[in-house]
């Protein structure tokens, strides 16, 4: 049900762009206003979300410890899975951000004869996630060719590597195909595995369908419906130089693609995709496990009113004497 609702929502978005451009002639709205608004919402939204997280105190060390912590010198420490220094944390974060270290673990649980709980290796989510994120990144970088003039030289190298199969005209880009495949896998995983389906919400399906829609419309534009690329670049360059113009003859698929991308960007600060900033700010990953070496003081500690025994005795000395209670000072 969640999946169907999300699918309907994404299809509705595409339909809005289609009707808006081809029937109502709202090219300016969908080609200029919406992208600008989406970019502003994205930037301001991400900043305010990160600042909000930054203002939340994390008084104690709460890293997830995935290995032996620092102990006696003759016990081998898992330096990156249970870091106790800043350097270790940096390596741990790099492994997490670039290679998704935390997914590369034994995540499959089974009850076997006995009954015995067994953990085993299941790297499909790790592999699918890695393929998805990296190809998405490469596709994003490749789009810089539409946003820069002259195009920086390194993009030529990326395109040459990405399209080195030289299949078809225009050449197939491996990243585009893998991206669509990976996002499809991540979707099927949610639908076909019962316990994953059980915890999947509309907020999980919606971004998947949205990215699927973006990738599909992009692939359609490049290989099938053939959008006028020079016209498209004229529009994007107009946006980037703040002199927006609407070149004639850009097909409606482009506007659908642009609207879905704008929706995705504007949606990021309010959704799970905020993990792009959150991964850096997650205290279970970015803190060193050094509770035994460093004293961490709670930042909101207020001064505690201490009433020492000495003060107590000063207050009640006479009464205590009268009652026959021994006092320390006469």
């Amino acid at each position: 049900m969640n999946a169907i609702l999300s699918l309907i929502a994404v299809a509705g978005l595409a339909l809005i762009a289609y009707i808006g451009v081809s029937a109502a002639g709202l090219q300016f709205l969908f080609g200029v206003v919406v992208p600008y608004v989406a970019l502003a919402v994205f930037l301001i939204g991400v900043i305010s979300r990160v600042v909000k997280w930054g203002r939340t105190p994390v008084p104690f060390r709460i890293p997830t410890t995935c290995g032996q912590q620092q102990s006696f010198p003759w016990i081998k420490q898992a330096k990156f899975d249970n870091p106790s220094t800043g350097g270790g944390v940096i390596v741990r974060m790099l492994l997490e951000v670039f290679l998704f270290r935390s997914l590369f673990s034994n995540v499959k649980f089974e009850l076997r004869e006995g009954p015995k709980l067994a953990y085993s290796s299941a790297k499909w989510l790790w592999l699918g996630g890695l393929a998805f994120h990296w190809t998405f990144f490469i596709v994003l970088i490749r789009h810089l060719r539409l946003f820069t003039d002259p195009v920086p030289g390194f993009l030529k190298g990326i395109e040459a590597l990405d399209g080195f199969l030289q299949v078809g005209i225009p050449g197939i880009m491996i990243s585009g195909v893998v991206l669509l495949g990976a996002v499809t896998y991540l979707f099927l995983r949610r639908v076909l595995i019962p316990n994953v389906r059980y915890i999947s919400l509309a907020a999980d399906y919606f971004p998947l369908f949205l990215i699927m829609g973006v990738a599909l419309s992009g692939i359609l534009m490049r290989y099938v419906l053939r959008v006028d690329i020079v016209g498209v670049k004229k529009l994007t360059m107009g946006l980037m130089t703040f002199s927006p113009g609407l070149p004639e003859g850009i097909s409606v698929v482009f506007y659908i693609h642009l609207f879905l991308v704008s929706t995705l960007f504007a949606y990021i600060p309010f959704s799970k995709i905020m993990h792009l900033g959150g991964v850096f700010l997650s205290p279970t990953r970015n803190l060193a496990n050094n509770s035994r070496m460093v004293r961490h003081i709670n930042p909101w500690n207020y001064p505690v009113d201490v009433h020492t025994y000495e003060e107590y005795e000063n207050d009640f000395r006479e009464k205590m004497k009268k009652a026959g209670i021994p006092v320390e000072k006469e």
Binding site: F42, L43, I47, F147, V230, K234, T241, G245, G277
Partner: peptide, 20 residues
């Protein structure tokens, strides 16, 4: 983060969007 995502704006500053 902001620098990366607004890179094209700075890169193209002062240019016009003329198509060849």
């Amino acid at each position: 983060f902001v620098g990366l995502f607004t890179f094209p704006i700075f890169y193209n500053m002062g240019k016009t969007a003329e198509a060849p």
